[in-house]
């Protein structure tokens, strides 16, 4: 029969290893383990040991490109500073949205009353949004995209109107460089075929 306590001892060896690792790793990475991008990367790599804790909010884990949080509307800025929103008010995002939190009033020409491809109002009830990303996925005009900014806690309800939702194309290119490059290439190709046809 085994000595009573052998199993406990075996387990304690594991805890002891974790305990010492937390000091050894701190010493090994002296001064660089915390509050530096390398240190943070090390702590979420396959070799991570010791303390895993991220000192939020002083330190923030960089989010991957595909990270998605609350959508925003992309606008292009001309040299004169004029903002043109990409959205054509086609309504696809409003139809695809699972909790139905996108509300769009289609724009109309004040003279003729005919619909124009511009939203008059665009509202997202961000408290109902489930961050699924469908709106960005299925928008045919690359006009609505998912944000990376997750620090949106507030005291009231987050009812976002068109102004609050608008962000420049530059910002989009910054947070999602690969996606942006791919979409730009696709748009250029489309424009080229169109030009060739004309």
């Amino acid at each position: 029969m085994d000595t009573y306590g052998k199993g406990i001892f075996k387990g304690l060896m594991v805890t002891a290893k974790h305990f010492f690792d937390s000091y050894l790793d701190d010493i090994k990475w002296w001064g660089k383990r915390y509050y530096t991008p390398e240190g943070l990367a090390h702590r979420s790599s396959k070799d991570a040991k010791g303390i895993f804790t991220v000192q939020y909010p002083e330190e923030k884990v960089p989010v991957p490109e595909e990270f998605r949080y609350i959508p925003f509307l992309v606008y292009d800025e001309s040299e004169t500073g004029e903002k043109t929103i990409r959205c054509t008010s086609c309504g696809i995002c409003a139809k695809a949205c699972p909790p139905q939190c996108i509300w769009i009033v289609r724009g109309s020409d004040p003279n003729t009353g005919r619909p124009v491809p511009q939203p008059a109002e665009f509202t997202i009830d961000a408290d109902i949004c489930m961050n699924c990303g469908f709106c960005a996925e299925y928008c045919p005009f690359d006009a609505i995209k998912m944000d990376h900014d997750y620090e949106i806690a507030s005291y009231g309800r987050n009812l976002l109107n068109k102004e609050a939702l608008m962000k420049p194309a530059k910002y989009y290119a910054e947070i999602r460089p690969l996606n942006n490059a791919r979409e730009e290439a696709a748009r250029a190709e489309k424009a080229a075929t169109k030009a060739a046809k004309a």
Binding site: Q100, W103, I104
Partner: peptide, 17 residues
């Protein structure tokens, strides 16, 4: 209750929140 099925008609094109 909003509508029998989604997408709800109230969201577009006259989607006043």
């Amino acid at each position: 209750y909003d509508d029998e099925v989604k997408p709800f008609k109230s969201r577009w094109p006259e989607g006043k929140h």
